[in-house]
């Protein structure tokens, strides 16, 4: 059943609709405060949103397989604290090694979630609700509740995400690279397509010879790896590591996915949707102070947007989406 009306097409092609809304918002904010749409300021806003974009793209893979990863924010805090303490202990380590180390720690934390989901068979929401507080608690244990401040970190540790290349920060370039890599992964690799199949119809996936649990495990590892990397980038960008780093950030990540049209029921979604959802939230965050609205409104606005987005999703999911294995309808 194809919805042929223009509005229906717009709604079912979520990315275009979202892109149009973002452009409209940019024009609106630019009308009120012209300096907001200058290239320099936009680059800054993009830099501010980069971490959310990467996390949303990785979270999308998890959600595609009918799971959810609520532990990403705690993963950021724990990995960030680990690399910060590592940096204090071994100040000579090059930033690139630290980056790889953070990805490694992130994968371990993600794999732990994944193993509990795959081999033990606990629902992912329970696992990640649990590890969310466990990982956060570990940050306290390894740091003793102390902060690692900017002056304790080495210059090369701090420099990596801030360095600029072609007017964009390295952090922004990393976000673009991760987004492109995940796009290629979901679109052109067998594993990526299998992930869609797992979420679209797990039973059919099993009969097509796809190990559902294994692909869920893989997505948790990817989500963990990206979260771990973001842990280093976060701590380095804000130049401080403490227990409450990124508290409740997982909700923004899930919100970005929901706004980007990723179905929480699995199997539907695109990387562009997740990235645009994140950009949308980032735009709200950066534009609110500019147009003179108190930042206290931000939480309520993103909540309202999530609720509206899921309501719209519930309509558009009935008319398609990217499905590898379709559910049989009678």
């Amino acid at each position: 059943m194809k919805n042929t009306s223009l509005l229906g097409k717009m709604i079912s092609h979520r990315e275009w609709l979202l892109g149009a809304i973002i452009v409209l918002m940019l024009m609106g904010v630019g009308y009120i405060a012209p300096f907001f749409v200058t290239p320099g300021n936009l680059a800054e806003a993009f830099d501010d949103t980069s971490i959310l974009i990467m996390l949303a793209c990785a979270q999308m893979l998890v959600i595609l397989t009918r799971c959810i990863d609520l532990s990403v924010a705690s993963n950021i805090a724990l990995t960030g604290m680990c690399v910060a303490l590592f940096n204090v202990a071994y100040p000579d380590t090059p930033a690139l090694v630290t980056l790889i180390l953070s990805i490694g720690i992130g994968i371990v934390l993600g794999a732990f979630n994944g193993i509990l989901v795959w081999l033990v068979g606990i629902p992912s929401i329970v696992v990640t609700l649990g590890t969310m507080s466990v990982y956060r608690g570990f940050v306290f244990l390894i740091s003793g509740g102390e902060w690692v401040n900017a002056h304790e970190m080495t210059p090369q540790f701090l420099a990596l995400p801030r360095a600029t290349f072609l007017d964009l920060t390295v952090l922004s370039w990393i976000a673009i690279a991760v987004t492109l890599a995940l796009f290629v992964f979901t679109r052109f690799t067998k594993t990526g397509l299998s992930i869609f199949a797992v979420g679209g119809n797990p039973k059919a996936a099993v009969y097509s010879g796809i190990n559902v649990g294994k692909y869920q495990f893989i997505t948790f590892c990817i989500s963990g790896a990206v979260a771990g990397m973001c842990g280093y980038l976060w701590v380095s960008r804000y130049a401080v590591a403490y227990v409450e780093v990124a508290v409740a950030f997982e909700l923004q990540v899930v919100a970005a996915c929901v706004i980007g049209g990723i179905s929480i029921a699995g199997g539907i979604g695109t990387i562009w949707g997740a990235a645009l959802g994140a950009i949308f939230l980032g735009l709200i965050k950066n534009a609110l102070p500019v147009i003179g609205i108190s930042p206290f409104w931000q939480l309520a606005i993103s909540g309202l947007v999530i609720v509206l987005a899921v309501i719209i999703n519930s309509r558009s999911e009935k008319c398609g989406g990217r499905r590898i294995l379709r559910e049989a309808h009678q």
Partner: peptide
């Protein structure tokens, strides 16, 4: 009414309700 999984809706209203409190 819209047949949406409870978990997404309540994640949304979780931000919304506390957000109103902050406003």
């Amino acid at each position: 009414r819209f047949d949406i999984p409870a978990i997404v809706v309540t994640i949304g209203t979780m931000s919304l309700y506390r957000g109103i409190a902050y406003i």
